[in-house]
Design a protein around this nucleic acid. Structure first.
Lengths: 227, 227
DNA sequence: CGCGTCTTTGACCAAGCGGTCAATTGGGAC
DNA sequence: GTCCCAATTGACCGCTTGGTCAAAGACGCG
């Protein structure tokens, strides 16, 4: 598992800095810049995931990052720039579990492990899940074509792996793309619709739906894939 | 199936009318009131589902309903009132497929039929799905306690039915609540994350993901429930 | 026709928004 | 220390927003 805290991951920042009438396109260098951009992105994740892009205010993010609004805008040229940076930066991490799906592993184990990793992400990183859910719900207006292509390429590759397992008779016949959608939908459901899940579940389970969810999903995909 | 067009369903409107310094709490009576409230709610569904609550503007909804903003506010006292009315009014329709789950039917058939009905709703009423997704994502701030209780009561009842089928050995052992979540998550995924589904799927299927999705989900739950 | 009520709207307002700017403060290299 | 650039901020601006209001228009009924 070993999911790193967000604030630790400050590499790969693509946010554009702005000196008065000057844009620095390279990655930030100074220690203070790293700290502040990380703080801003952490605060933005908190706010965006809670109230969505339109519901968030620059001032609100600035307060959550414990700095003034103009200071925040010294590091990111606009609210949109923060959002875009956040999305691009987190998508990589978000796809790690799928990337780890190993074509040379035991098919059923690989898929079940993927389900469990994805469910753990819903449990440990619900804000990221809601951020993406919000973005995709609105038609992904802030995701670049490059990012979408990279996502598609990864899914294509892993779908081919799954299809290979089907063809080799190692798992029951499944539509590989829809299988991946099933995994995404069911695992992310526990992050995105958390309040609904807890509102509906009997009290004892509502306190922590994840243990029973994990067992349910394992059961589900085991039966789905059994030869 | 026979899903009625939204504009036809004008009964049960609970929106408060406002004459100058006067609130009419009863349902609207005149023909013109019915027409206008229906137009407003249809326009609001279009706008809210596309850009979310915070992204929507009263003026935008008014324009979509082909009327002026003050006129719209003559029928609904606030933007929030429109949203609340819309949610409460649509939730009933939204839960119809689950309500139709028949304790006296053939268990596997009942559940598979529920899955198909729910998937049809995602195909035919994606705006409603996104409206609810948006609301729940934000923590359901506009859903009354009554509504949440009614939802829970319905799910409790149907979960008991499913549990009964399990106990009678008519379907394989499953966690009834998580089974319902699995159905919700996977069917609504095709409405809420439509752009992602189409972006990832091979072109031929992306044009209409629903036929293959229907087969996939039938397969999935068949294997899940088989004794 | 006249008349009261329902409906519609242009003009307006206060608040909040994203973003700018000039001016101030702080930090590090020498 | 000092000097320069990075970092920070209070004040401000133009615009959009949700909502109000007074007045005008349309409708129905005698």
């Amino acid at each position: 598992m070993a999911i790193a805290s967000l604030t630790e991951k400050t590499d790969g920042i693509t946010g554009k800095l702005k000196a008065p009438a000057l844009m620095i396109s390279a990655a930030p260098k100074t220690r203070i810049q790293k700290r502040n951009t990380a703080n801003i992105l952490e605060a933005a994740l908190e706010v965006f995931s809670a109230v969505g892009y339109n519901g968030a205010t620059v001032d609100g993010i600035a307060q959550a990052a414990k700095m003034s609004k103009p200071n925040l805008l010294y590091y990111f040229s606009s609210k949109e720039a923060i959002h875009v940076t956040l999305l691009e930066q987190l998508l990589d991490m978000w796809l790690d579990p799928l990337r780890a799906l190993d074509a040379d592993g035991v098919p059923k184990d690989e898929i079940l492990a993927y389900v469990q990793r994805k469910l753990e992400m819903s449990r440990d990183m619900p804000r990221e899940s809601r951020l993406f859910a919000n973005e995709v719900l609105r038609g992904a207006p802030h995701l670049s074509a490059d990012t979408k292509n990279a996502l598609k390429a990864l899914v294509d590759q892993k779908a081919a792996v799954i299809q290979g397992w089907v063809d080799a008779g190692q798992i029951a016949p499944v539509h590989p793309y829809h299988l991946i959608f099933s995994i995404w939908a069911q695992t992310q459901h526990y992050a995105d619709f958390d309040v609904q899940v807890r509102a509906v579940l009997p009290e004892a389970e509502a306190r922590d739906p994840f243990p029973t969810a994990a067992r349910h999903l394992q059961q589900m995909f085991e039966r789905m894939l059994a030869i």
